[in-house]
């Protein structure tokens, strides 16, 4: 279980895999999903294994999700907004690095 020690900030509603998620303004997508107990954010590129938040600070790229149709967004570095459409990312999306 996950607890919020306080409820400040306005409610923001976005969706994950088509299901509504209630977050607080200022949350990152990764924090908001963690707060509702969702930890499986993508399937890995090589083996398809489940992955989720690891570093929460933009370094590890394990929380990559699709946001409004754009793949490879770091959930921990993306702030929640009303109506964001967030999807689990599967497999090897080509990244330019």
């Amino acid at each position: 279980m996950v607890r919020r020690i306080e409820t400040i900030g306005n409610e923001v509603i976005f969706s994950f895999e088509g299901q509504p998620v209630t977050a607080r303004a200022g949350d990152s997508v990764a924090a908001a999903l963690t707060a509702v107990g969702i930890s499986h954010l993508r399937d890995s590129v090589v083996s398809g294994a489940a992955r989720g938040v690891y570093c929460m600070m933009g370094a590890c790229f394990d929380c990559l999700v699709e946001v409004n149709g754009v793949p490879n967004r770091q959930a921990c570095m993306t702030e929640v907004r009303h109506g964001l459409d967030v999807r689990r990312q599967s497999g090897g999306v080509e990244v330019r690095s």
Binding site: V2, G26, A31, A49, D62
Partner: peptide, 22 residues
């Protein structure tokens, strides 16, 4: 690499930035 395993820093960031504790 399993979901649910994070760095300690990640839990602290949740607490500092969002007031979320597991």
């Amino acid at each position: 690499t399993l979901p649910g395993v994070t760095t300690a820093g990640a839990l602290q960031i949740l607490l500092k930035a969002s007031g979320i504790v597991q």
